[in-house]
């Protein structure tokens, strides 16, 4: 079974919680309940939307963020695209070093890469694709980290 969902959000961080809840509701309806979905995908999607609105679109209220979600079997793919000029995802400091762990920011992309099975940026750097694979063993009681950065 393949389910597709497309949302366009105004560039307003107050919409993120509601949008994530809606996407999660649709994904949960398609997949068996799994903690990997509840935590990893929820946090990853929140981070991607937050980055898109705050940094990609630079908090410009005239801009928008597009979410495209495909659920195909046990694989969930979400693409989040902003209207900004993009950035270099390979030039992001490790937030877990002693010098960086005390900083207030810089954990978003790290969390995405830690929690999702795949995180891919387009060449421009204004669109990120998150992939989560749910296995039969992803029953409540298990939390998994995905591929590390």
């Amino acid at each position: 079974m393949k389910t597709e969902l497309v949302l366009e959000l105004p560039n307003d961080i107050r919409t993120i919680g509601h949008a994530v809840d809606y996407v999660m509701e649709r994904c949960t309806a398609c997949c068996e309940h799994a903690r990997k979905l509840d935590l990893n995908f929820r946090v990853g999607l929140t981070e991607a939307l937050s980055n898109a609105m705050l940094y990609g679109n630079a908090e410009d209220p005239a801009k928008r963020v597009r979410i495209e979600v495909v659920v195909a079997g046990s694989e969930i793919t979400a693409r989040i695209t902003d209207e900004g000029t993009g950035f270099d995802p390979d030039n992001v400091p490790d937030p877990t070093t002693p010098a960086n762990v005390v900083k207030t920011g810089g954990r978003g992309i790290f969390l995405m890469r830690s929690l999702l099975d795949e995180v891919r940026f387009n060449e421009q750097g204004n669109s990120v694709t998150l992939v989560l694979r749910l296995e039969q063993s992803d029953s409540p009681g298990e939390v998994e980290g995905g591929a590390q950065a």
Partner: peptide, 16 residues
């Protein structure tokens, strides 16, 4: 239910 990186960041800021 959950915390994102901004939530973690505000806790770091408040602690400081």
């Amino acid at each position: 239910g959950y915390i994102d990186s901004s939530g973690l960041g505000v806790l770091v800021s408040l602690s400081k």
